[in-house]
Amino acid sequence: MNARHSAVVDPGLQPERTTLAWSRTLMAFVTVAALFLRWGGEHGAVVVLLFGGAIAVALAIGATQRRRYTHRAQAMGQPTGQPKVGPAVALSAAVVLLGAAGLAVILI
């Protein structure tokens, strides 16, 4: 990641660890997406939507990683952390929607 952006270095590497945690989460979405493709034989072309949904979340995470890392790195050493609720809520909603879509495909 880009060290030039972080004036203050956190010896605990918290921004980096947090970014890696997001990367692992991204890969988990890719895994789920790939598994959904295996439903194609039984459930037909609709699984492309499930696959696409999970991949879209992964892409959204990947596209914003650098910006969010910079934000975190800059927050180190500041008196305020400025946590953002948006990404957390969006991520949870994405998982719930993905699960609901999967349920719908199984049941319909």
């Binding site: 918290q14 947090t18 945690a21 989460t25 789920v32 180190m76 952390g81 946590p83 957390a88 998982v95």
Partner: peptide, 23 residues
């Protein structure tokens, strides 16, 4: 801010757990 980041990583670990159940 470090505590906020620790909270965020814990949240992500739960999200991955949820994804593991989905998977």
């Amino acid at each position: 801010p470090r505590f906020t980041l620790a909270n965020e990583r814990t949240f992500l670990a739960w999200i991955r757990t949820a994804l593991a159940f989905l998977a």
